[in-house]
């Protein structure tokens, strides 16, 4: 029993992104909730420590006393991860990150996504590469949304992205891990955290991603659009933890036939 794996205990296994340690491997978005109160409660129930938000135009001349998301999700309590959701070209993504950095007092950790089309929300990889290059040069710490393509994942890592975030299925689809073999290969090749981003529908999907060896999962719709988002947030937390522990514990190999768990020697019948 001299194997390092046996030294791992539950709860003693941090996620490290850009040199910061996190206890939770679940990252959550703040979109699609019915209210800021619900957002806050769901995020608390999820145990997430990294929380994404979007940057949008301020409504001029309309209700300036409206509450602000940041009043509910405090940057003092959470690592805020601004994302470039809604950007369809590199320039828009880069400008969004620069605005976010200003908005959040020189915050440099960003989630980059540059989308290809509105129907699939699949990433535009050449545009994502172009944006990542500029952002890294400008000192941003880039977590990048990409396809479940091992070659691209490695490329993003090599250019200096601090985490690679392959999709499991289209954003908001809830279809689960559509290509576990690719996700597995991406994880095996990686030396930065691999976080499944998009496609998770329910707690077992999150567990599967973690069992494949992913370092974490980012989700939004699966929690926010559940009938009871706060309860689903709690379920996701457990799914992530169960999957992670199962991965570390090491599952048994799959066998084509049965394998008895009680000894066959010493039975009194014959």
């Amino acid at each position: 029993m001299n194997n390092a794996v046996h030294k791992l205990k539950p709860g003693n296994d941090d996620l490290i992104v850009d040199n910061i340690h996190y206890r939770s491997r679940l990252l959550v978005g703040t979109g699609k909730y019915r209210s800021f109160e619900e957002t806050q409660l769901a995020i608390e129930a999820s145990g997430a420590e990294i929380v994404t938000l979007a940057v949008r135009r301020t409504n001029i001349g309309q209700n300036q006393n409206e509450p602000n998301l940041l009043d509910y999700i405090s940057p003092k309590k959470y690592t805020i991860l601004p994302n470039t959701a809604g950007c369809y070209d590199a320039e828009a993504a880069v400008r969004t990150c620069r605005l976010a950095r200003e908005l959040l007092d020189n915050h440099t950790l960003v989630k980059l996504e540059v989308l290809g089309d509105q129907k699939t929300l699949f990433p535009d990889i050449p545009a994502t590469l172009a944006a990542a290059e500029i952002l890294i040069k400008e000192g941003f710490r880039v977590m990048v949304y990409t396809n479940d393509d091992p070659i691209m994942a490695k490329r993003f890592e090599q250019m200096g992205c601090v985490a690679v975030m392959p999709l499991a299925a289209p954003i908001g689809s809830g279809l689960g891990i559509r290509n576990p073999y690719n996700i597995r290969t991406i994880v095996e090749n990686a030396s930065v955290p691999i976080l499944v981003d998009a496609g998770v529908g329910t707690a077992s999907d999150a567990a599967i991603a973690m069992e494949l060896g992913c370092d974490g999962v980012l989700m939004n719709t699966a929690i926010a659009e559940a009938k009871n988002p706060v309860l689903m947030a709690s379920a996701m937390k457990k799914g992530i933890e169960a999957g992670r522990e199962a991965y570390l514990a090491g599952r048994i190999p799959r066998r084509a036939y049965a394998s008895a768990s009680s000894p066959i020697d010493g039975t009194f019948f014959s």
Binding site: T30, R56, R57, T58, E113, G172, N220
Partner: peptide
């Protein structure tokens, strides 16, 4: 001039 603020968001749901 663009004036922006933070809103809820995870992954894309719409275009701006």
């Amino acid at each position: 001039i663009e004036i922006v603020h933070a809103i809820g968001g995870g992954q894309s749901t719409f275009n701006w």
